[in-house]
Design a protein around this nucleic acid. Structure first.
Ligand SMILES: [Mn+2]
Ligand SMILES: [Mn+2]
Ligand SMILES: [Zn+2]
Ligand SMILES: [Zn+2]
Lengths: 148, 148
DNA sequence: ACTATTTTTGCAAATTACTTGCAAATCAAA
DNA sequence: TTTGATTTGCAAGTAATTTGCAAAAATAGT
């Protein structure tokens, strides 16, 4: 694939490197592989999916978890708990803020690029979704912790 | 506590029994204990917290998980994934729809009885929260699964 | 480039929330 | 009651995620 468009590939490489540098993370092969994958194929992936999408033996499972946790810590990646026994990870592109809907039965995931609940639920109903529930959680640093 | 107001206690008992019946669940001691706790003390609890809040040896850990899963299935209880390694459970009162904010650092949980994101974030800022993020996930049955 | 210091990785073993098999206890309907 | 179906407790199992440690790679200074 990189052979088809060497210029674009170099751009991507530079982007990945810059993102890591901006966040104060050193540039390593596993980190470039994982972040590169999340940039190219976007959508929430489980650690296992990431492991199997990368070239065989290019990166250990433990390394994937460690890198993903670091990415989440610096808010380069977001975590979803769409399925209760497994976290999903996705590149946190500040210009493409969105949310997800997962079917309770088949687990198919779709994206929503709007951010108003009533609108979203109406759209979901139009799309044929039934028995819609949502869960909205905020994460922040509280006043006490911000001072201490 | 039940000694202080036997009438209220009977009402609560009846409420619990009714809720279970409405959802087609049989009335058992563990189910009454767990649902009773979630009704009395409201707020998201982990399975472990529930286990330790109940009278010693009144209910096994496995039973707690089994009951909670059944409650979630019939939408009597909601699940939150406020902390990544542990689910939290809360009574799903349709008349008190709300959401939560957890501090990234001290893990303190507060509730929000509004349901519009901009309003909520503004309120959070006023309350002194910093570095606010939110995560909104929808769960539903997709058109294909609703037909099949 | 080379070296020293720090950080990260791979591997294998550990952790832990959660689940499950099964026999005994409990529940619901008659 | 009786009886058949459901649920529970206990103990063992499962699976996602984490961790200890020695080797490998990255960074900073020369
Ligand atoms: Mn997405
Ligand atoms: Mn609550
Ligand atoms: Zn579906
Ligand atoms: Zn705090």
């Amino acid at each position: 694939m990189s052979l088809l468009n060497p210029k674009k590939e170099l751009e991507r490489e530079a982007l990945i490197t810059n993102l890591l540098k901006e966040k104060g993370l050193s540039i390593t092969a596993p980190r470039k592989l994982i972040l590169g994958l999340l940039l190219k194929e976007h959508g929430p992936f489980s650690a296992e999916e990431i492991l199997h999408s990368l070239p065989k033996n290019s990166c250990d499972q433990a390394t994937i978890y460690r890198c993903l946790n670091q990415f989440v810590e610096v808010q380069l990646v977001n975590t979803s708990f769409l399925e209760k026994d497994m976290a999903h990870f996705e590149y946190n592109d500040p210009h493409h803020h969105h949310h997800h809907i997962i079917c309770r039965i088949c687990k198919k995931i779709e994206s929503f690029h709007e951010c108003l609940m009533e609108k979203i639920e109406t759209n979901l109903q139009r799309k044929g979704y039934k028995d819609i529930q949502h869960r909205l959680e905020f994460f922040a640093v509280c006043e006490t912790c911000a001072k201490g």
